[in-house]
């Protein structure tokens, strides 16, 4: 588990080659680098990633920036990152910027995992 004052990343285990991280608290300029650092560790192990945003209380532009960076980074390494169970504050920002399709958002963690499984060769 990675924790800062306002932000937590809980390792929710893995299914096959996909790691699941659950985020809690504020994803903003102060905490976005922590998320990128943790996700880089997942990527270094050659895993796909599901990020659960159910407990995100604030999603700032730096958080959105980090999510966009992750999509590109995982694509570069032929990996996949999916976002699941967005909280209301997170959903409002994603909707405002019309990023729902680009970020590939799923209603639940299970749906995101199933989608990655279905995509696997």
């Amino acid at each position: 588990m990675t924790t800062t004052t306002d932000f937590e990343i809980v390792d929710a285990g893995r299914r096959g080659r996909t790691a699941v991280l659950r985020l809690r608290g504020r994803l903003d300029a102060g905490t976005a680098p922590t998320l990128l650092e943790r996700c880089a560790q997942v990527q270094a192990q050659g895993q796909n990633l599901v990020l659960n945003l159910e407990a995100i209380s604030f999603l700032g532009s730096s958080g959105i920036g980090a999510m966009l960076v992750l999509v590109e980074q995982f694509q570069e390494q032929a990996g996949v990152v999916r976002f699941a169970a967005l909280s209301e504050p997170a959903r409002a920002v994603v909707e405002l910027l019309d990023l729902g399709q680009y970020l590939t958002i799923h209603a639940t963690e299970e749906e995101a995992l199933a989608a990655i499984d279905a995509q696997a060769p």
């Binding site: 700032g60 532009s61 999510m67 019309d98």
Partner: peptide, 19 residues
């Protein structure tokens, strides 16, 4: 470097660009 990273992430999230 930390300031540069903060600025880029923030701008990317503000305008919704991946680059």
């Amino acid at each position: 470097h930390e300031a540069a990273e903060s600025l880029l992430l923030n701008l990317m999230g503000q305008v919704g660009t991946a680059r």
